[in-house]
């Protein structure tokens, strides 16, 4: 369970989050929507303890992570994995080394076992053929696929966090990434891996999420399912989701 209680955070004079509160379960499929600079990625970083809030509490699995040391946070972070926008692959390593990174850090495995696991993960995301390539040789969509494979290498996360996973991709690549995200979170709750995707691409959000939150002025101004989202009276939110209202998804 993830609980945000009156979380506020400012960067300099810019108040990014202002008393933000919500609750989420690990098996939920959530899309956090909002314009650029509204603090969507900040929420993911707060969940992982990569940032500390100015005030408020963030409780994960019953522990207030704002009070944990970096070493204690490692245990909480094992619940999650994250795929950053652009993939955030280690650019000095090949695809193989990127995916094997966690296996080498966490486990005392033989090289053959690492190779087998890396190939298995890359096959799962359809990228086995790129095993010897460098990140700079990959397209945006390919980098994100490898990042997803890497995110699954360390452990079996309860929840995967996606930061703008389809931004900058062509419609076909974006659709493929959405399909992959759905595959990794398939099954029925509560026996499935959850996800939080932050995006401003509403058409992609509806493909992967069941619960939608809209972030405005540092607070959640909307929280509901797809039907509630489509029927919202909020004029600004209706403009934001105009694309799906027109298509009638």
């Amino acid at each position: 369970m993830i609980v945000f209680e009156n979380v506020s955070l400012a960067f300099g004079n810019h108040q990014v989050l202002d008393g933000l509160s919500f609750e989420a379960r690990f098996y939920e499929k959530i899309a956090i929507l909002g314009g650029s600079g509204e603090g969507k990625t900040t929420i993911l970083k707060l969940i992982l303890g990569l940032l500390q809030p100015d005030s408020g509490r963030i409780i994960i699995d019953g522990k207030d992570i704002t009070k944990l040391s970096e070493r204690q946070l490692r245990e909480t972070r094992m619940n999650f994995s994250i795929v950053f926008q652009e993939g955030a692959l280690f650019d000095s390593m090949t695809v193989r080394e990127n995916v094997a990174f966690c296996l080498r850090e966490y486990y005392d495995l033989r090289e053959e076992e690492i190779e087998q696991r890396v190939r298995e993960l890359l096959r799962r995301v359809g990228m086995e053929y790129a095993i010897d390539m460098m990140p700079e040789e990959l397209s945006g969509g390919m980098q994100r696929r490898v990042a997803i494979a890497r995110s699954l290498a360390a452990c079996e996360p309860k929840m995967i966090l996606y930061d703008e996973p389809t931004t900058g991709l062509d419609p076909i690549s974006a659709d493929n990434i959405c399909g992959l995200i759905n595959d990794l979170s398939s099954g029925e709750p509560p026996n499935r891996r959850g996800l939080i995707v932050v995006t401003h691409k509403i058409t992609d959000a509806v493909k992967v999420a069941e619960r939608f939150m809209y972030l405005r002025s540092g607070k959640i101004s909307f929280d509901g399912n797809i039907e509630e989202l489509k029927n919202t009276d909020d004029a600004e939110l209706r403009r934001f989701i105009n694309e799906i209202l027109l298509v009638g998804t």
């Binding site: 972070r77 950053f84 650019d91």
Partner: peptide
């Protein structure tokens, strides 16, 4: 800037 340092921290690497 490329979030590679964040990824290290998420993976439990100092």
């Amino acid at each position: 800037l490329g979030h590679q340092v964040d990824i290290l921290r998420v993976f439990g690497v100092d």
